[in-house]
């Protein structure tokens, strides 16, 4: 197994926002191995979202280094770039390109997207006429088509009604159990325990524990 992504003494500082301790993250070291599902747990404000933004290359660290073996690292975002005045089809196109696909790929996947989102002919209506559930389903269906080498997931992505939530959860689990390399940030301890190969516990901007899910979760619960 090789590391697709490795953090070396990474620090991140939002100096203007916090005066007491300006470091959001400090001295963070870990690796993401090819094919694994890595879980990240921690209380609110522990720096989990900042960690994801650093991993996906949106921002650069203020200290340390991040080594990437691939550029294809995507933070899964639902309804990314959605505009109410555009049709479902047009929004799917823009969202798909934002999520790393080419126009031709989105076009080819359009039938699958419409079917997964259960939208039928309404795909050609403006999204402002959609219910929140319909928007969520379309967003999820598009996001499913993204095929990054490393998939970053922030919290359980639950959209739509009960039936669709089950369907989307099922889809996600299958993705995680496949060869997909993934990093999952979640408060859902059960999901972390069953789906992750390794878990990182983030506290006060640093890694407090790292290892097998059952060990880390046990420390975390105390």
């Amino acid at each position: 197994m090789s590391a697709l992504l490795s953090f070396e003494n990474v620090g991140l500082r939002y100096s203007r926002d916090r005066r007491d301790n300006p470091w959001t993250l400090q001295g963070v070291n870990f690796e993401v191995m090819k094919g694994e599902t890595l879980g990240v747990i921690g209380r609110n404000g522990a720096g989990k979202s900042s960690l994801l933004r650093l991993m996906s290359g949106l921002i650069a660290p203020d200290a340390g280094r991040i080594h990437r073996q691939t550029d294809s690292i995507l933070l899964l975002s639902i309804q990314l770039g959605f505009q109410p005045h555009l049709t479902g089809r047009e929004n799917a196109m823009i969202s798909g390109i934002l999520l790393g696909m080419h126009r031709a790929e989105v076009k080819a996947a359009m039938d699958d997207i419409v079917e997964f989102a259960e939208l039928g002919e309404q795909i050609d209506d403006p999204v402002r006429t959609y219910s929140a559930g319909m928007r969520g389903r379309l967003g999820f269906a598009v996001a499913c088509q993204a095929r990054p080498e490393v998939l970053l997931i922030d919290e359980a992505l639950s959209v739509g009604d009960r039936e669709f939530r089950a369907k989307s959860r099922q889809y996600m689990l299958e993705r995680l159990q496949s060869e997909q390399t993934a990093v999952v940030v979640s408060h859902d301890e059960k999901l972390i325990a069953t789906e992750c190969n390794r878990v990182i516990w983030l506290a006060n901007g640093g890694i407090k524990a790292c290892g097998a899910p059952e060990d880390v979760l046990e420390q975390y619960r105390r």
Binding site: L58, L75, S77, L80, L98, G100
Partner: peptide, 8 residues
């Protein structure tokens, strides 16, 4: 909103 979620 977009550039805080994906790289462009």
């Amino acid at each position: 909103g977009i550039i805080s979620q994906v790289y462009l």
